[in-house]
């Protein structure tokens, strides 16, 4: 049985904001199925009582004094953006406009 269907891949791509083509969907669903069948082996390990590891550094909540310091130059940052206006990032339409 397939671990993941073409429809599921299409749904996930939508969630991840990837406008994949029909051709990509065909390829990815087959490849992701192979990958998922292989990694599903992880379920064999009895680990119910084992705490999860999210990272390996012996540190939690690193804080520093809240002192003002210079940040990046605004214009230098905006120069790398696809579009800017009045010292801000310009984005495509976010809300449906009323006619």
């Amino acid at each position: 049985m397939a671990a993941i269907s073409r429809e599921e891949v299409a749904h996930l791509a939508r969630l991840a904001r990837l406008a994949v083509t029909e051709e990509e969907l065909d390829t990815f669903s087959v490849q992701l199925d192979v990958i998922l069948q292989s990694v599903a082996r992880i379920g064999e390990v009895a680990a119910t009582d084992i705490p999860p590891t999210s990272h390996s550094v012996p540190l939690t909540n690193v804080l520093r004094e809240d002192q003002p310091r210079p940040g990046l130059q605004r214009d230098a940052v905006l120069a790398g953006a696809p579009d800017a206006e009045d010292g801000r990032f310009r984005v495509p339409r976010i809300l449906d406009e009323e006619a």
Partner: peptide, 24 residues
């Protein structure tokens, strides 16, 4: 819309392995 532009940009800008891993 922003969402359409985002999805089109990411599809055009990312290659196959990156897309596979994002979906996975």
């Amino acid at each position: 819309t922003l969402e359409e532009v985002m999805a089109a940009t990411r599809d055009a800008g990312f290659g196959p392995e990156v897309k596979r891993r994002i979906i996975l």
